[in-house]
Simulated scan of single mutants.
Amino acid sequence: DERVLRNIVNAFDELREYAEHGMIAYPYSTRECVSVVKHLQKYPQDTVSMALANVLAFDSHDEQAKKYITETFNRFHLPLDISVLHSTSRKVVNQLKWNDKKLNMWVEYNKGREASSPKHGKEDPDNKPHVGGNTWAGGTGGADTAGLGGKGGPYRLDKGHPVHQISDQEKANISKEAAEAARKMGQEELQKRLKEIEMNTRQAEEYEGYLVNVRQEIDQLRMIIEALKSKGKERNWMRNRTSGDLDDTRLVDALAGDKNVYKIRAESETSHWRSNNKDKKFLHFLVDVSGSMYRFNSYDQRLERMLEIAVIIMESL
């Protein structure tokens, strides 16, 4: 279908512009576009979403990038089923199937342990996985201690182990006294943490308010920084070569007879210098905290904007 092919080309062209502006990390090019078309030609029974999933998996872990990608293909009448891509959301993972078996991010676990008194739990110096108990901090599927997948604990604590998740019915099987005690201890630990970082509850809520407003900008800056780190470790395309892969940006020159229209993957002088330079880089940010920032904030929100910029910097670096 010529219309579908044209839409695929236009969609990938827009994704490339997103990469150039730092909105997504991976610079999608003609190669990925051709790969999708070849897939559809070889497997006509597959949907466009299935073909796209093969080349879009790079950004599937990034929710913000996945949003841009999905909106782009939908705009070009190429419905992209997000569930085809990797997702950590509980609802989507439950719906994914492979070889007629459900894929789960956790293991269902029911031991029937009663929740009584919340506590942090003991710290395991060997960080071994603990399941279904009420002794160790960071365990899963248990009761009372800080961990994941259990019930009655004062707060969540992830030690990096597979999560054994009790059922919702078992999670709800807890006395009001135990639930209230866990909630109270969680609030107490929150206050301790705020005191450690010299922040009170009102300041924490105010900070969260600024954070919500700039989450998208934070994601974009993080992707830009990660892309710069990747460029320092990976090889780059060396253009204007007489052999290698055809450079899709120089097709007109190739038709005109130019021989230097190929590119190869190699380590450039710039990336070599960057990867071997061990000197630390220090960034200094100067912000205006004069009285005029507060005095004239009602006119142009200058103080609000400066605070949002400060949050973007602190959360991104």
Rank of each mutant, 00 (worst) to 15 (best):
H77I: 04
W106T: 14
I166T: 09
T30A: 01
S167E: 06
K102H: 12
G138Y: 05
K102Q: 13
E308D: 14
G291C: 11
G149K: 01
V107P: 00
E196W: 08
I313S: 04
W98F: 10
H164K: 06
A19D: 10
T30L: 04
R235S: 05
A115E: 03
Q187A: 09
Y299D: 12
K42R: 15
K66Y: 01
R305M: 10
F285K: 02
N127V: 13
M293L: 13
F296I: 05
D258R: 15
I174C: 03
I8M: 00
I218W: 03
G160K: 09
R274N: 04
S271P: 03
L283T: 01
S271V: 15
D258N: 15
H284L: 06
I224R: 11
R183L: 12
S292V: 11
L221K: 11
D100F: 07
S268Q: 07
D59C: 01
I24Q: 00
A137Q: 12
V48S: 01
V287R: 02
F58W: 09
Q169E: 14
S268Y: 07
V48A: 02
Q203H: 08
H39W: 07
L255E: 13
G153S: 06
H39M: 08
K119S: 09
R250G: 07
A181Q: 14
G244W: 14
N104P: 02
S116H: 05
H77V: 06
Y26F: 09
Y28Q: 00
R183N: 10
D258V: 13
F76Q: 00
I8W: 00
G112D: 09
R239C: 03
S167R: 05
L246E: 12
E108T: 13
N276H: 15
A65M: 03
L286N: 08
R183A: 13
L103R: 05
I312V: 15
S316K: 09
